[in-house]
């Protein structure tokens, strides 16, 4: 249940931006979250409701860009969509793979007013 920590980190980032821009609140927030970022969607939704209360994000629209993980095999260079961390390369069946994308956990943009 580290998702609440993540939500509270997002609140901190948002508070900082609101302050820097002399704004009052966040209207819209866009998040990039990879499928291998270690975040459970349901847990994030649950934590969001509790975590943004009384913050600049309380009434913000949240947009989550879910990024599908892709990996590259370090043996044969084959690139593929990966759904489990222990998935072997479908071409040569080696487990030595590196992620190209899917570990993202970032605030892409904010609209403040």
């Amino acid at each position: 249940m580290h998702e609440l920590s993540i939500v509270l980190s997002i609140v901190d980032l948002a508070e900082e931006q609101v302050r820097k821009n002399n704004a009052q609140r966040v209207e819209n927030i866009e998040l990039d979250i990879g499928s291998m970022a270690g975040v459970e969607w349901d847990a994030l939704d649950f934590a969001w409701t509790a975590g943004v209360k009384n913050s600049v994000l309380e009434n913000a629209q949240r947009q989550v860009n879910r990024i599908t993980a892709r990996a590259r095999c370090l043996q044969c260079q084959h690139e593929f969509e990966i759904t489990q961390p222990f998935e072997p390369c479908p071409a040569c069946h080696d487990y030595l793979v590196e992620y190209i994308q899917g570990k993202e956990l970032r605030v892409k943009s904010l609209t403040v007013s």
Partner: peptide, 9 residues
């Protein structure tokens, strides 16, 4: 105002 933050959470 839109802020392109691109910051790791």
């Amino acid at each position: 105002r839109v802020i392109e933050l691109e910051q790791d959470i």
